[in-house]
């Protein structure tokens, strides 16, 4: 962040080399608005679609309607009251702990499998590699709601595949039970995103210059050593990107629990994930102000964790 702000003054003051539109002009007389004409339309939509709702949510979270007999008597400024309430709300914490658990277990498994698959395809020893690549990627093209419905039918222990599995092994596993439903969701998300992450890793692997492999071979490195010394370090950047996407995705978990809820009954609560809780608060509890506070906090938590991960990741790279 700070490096960006420092950049203009640190850059050489020479007139040539740096296009005017990329750097804020230091010279007031030479201020040129033509650049804004190009970015203007974007900025307008960016403001309407991103900044304005964000500001509105922040403002909302500091107010609370004064309710009398179910009728609002006007919004009152309540300061941080909604935030204080949120931090004392066990439902919020339970959702946050749940998505954190999900993050800690599902994301490493998913990225591990994706890395393995990318390396397998890249090894060139796979028969029908391009077919394999497309078929692993295919689930990503299926909308999450459809994928969840499909998996929900498979999970069903009355008439789904699980019913047959239970019958064959004489078990009575219920994948919708409170204990297992998070695992069931993790399986769906993993299935959906393995191919997507694999493709990111695979394209990173493709950018490695062949000369490195040649040099390794001359040095007598075996395939495992090539993987460890060349391939894994090379996809480290891609891994960081995928990790950050996955962190954001985990904290925003909504579709899968929402669709599974109607199939699994009441094992998925209204506060199952923070996003799910925010939705419930805004549309079922009619408390958009409190919901806004939750959304802001979750946004900040996500940014903070993603930032820390990125910081650590880039440190390791240097």
């Amino acid at each position: 962040m700070s490096s960006l702000a420092v950049a203009p003054s640190a850059a050489s003051p020479g007139p040539s080399g740096v296009p005017a539109s990329e750097r804020p002009p230091k010279n007031r007389i030479r201020r040129d608005w033509r650049g804004w004409m190009f970015v203007g339309p974007f900025v307008v939509f960016f403001f309407i679609a991103f900044i304005a709702p964000l500001i509105y949510a922040i403002i909302l979270s500091f107010f609370q309607p004064q309710m009398v007999w179910g009728v609002s008597q006007g919004e009152q400024f309540v300061g941080f009251a909604n935030y204080v309430k949120l931090f004392q709300d066990p439902n919020f914490w339970s959702g946050l702990v749940r998505v954190s658990l999900f993050l800690l277990i599902q994301v490493p498994i998913m990225l591990g499998i994706s890395t393995f698959l990318a390396l397998a395809i890249d090894s060139g020893r796979l028969y029908g590699a391009s077919f394999f690549r497309v078929s692993v990627f295919l689930p990503y093209a299926i909308p999450a709601v459809v994928a969840t419905l499909m998996w929900g039918f498979l999970y069903g222990n009355q008439y789904g595949i699980m019913a047959s599995v239970n019958e064959a092994f004489g078990t009575s596993v219920n994948l919708f039970s409170a204990r297992l439903v998070l695992v069931s969701i993790g399986n769906i998300v993993t299935w959906e995103f393995i191919g997507y992450n694999m493709l990111i890793f695979y394209s990173a692997l493709k950018t490695i210059p062949v000369s490195l492999y040649e040099a390794a071979r001359i040095d007598g490195a075996n395939e495992w050593q090539v993987v460890r010394a060349i391939k894994l370090p090379a996809i480290r950047g891609a891994l960081m990107v995928a990790l950050i996407f996955s962190i954001i995705g985990s904290f925003q978990l909504f579709n899968e629990p929402n669709v599974l809820q109607q199939m699994s009954g009441n094992t998925i609560t209204t506060y199952y994930t923070p996003n799910f809780y925010a939705f419930h608060l805004a549309f079922e509890a009619n408390n958009p102000n409190y919901s806004a506070a939750l959304a802001i906090v979750m946004g900040l938590v996500t940014v903070a964790i993603a930032y820390v991960v990125q910081l650590r990741g880039s440190k390791g790279m240097g």
Partner: peptide, 11 residues
Amino acid sequence: QISGWSDDWFR
């Protein structure tokens, strides 16, 4: 283990 109005329920 069966939810009302689900496919399984009607079956």
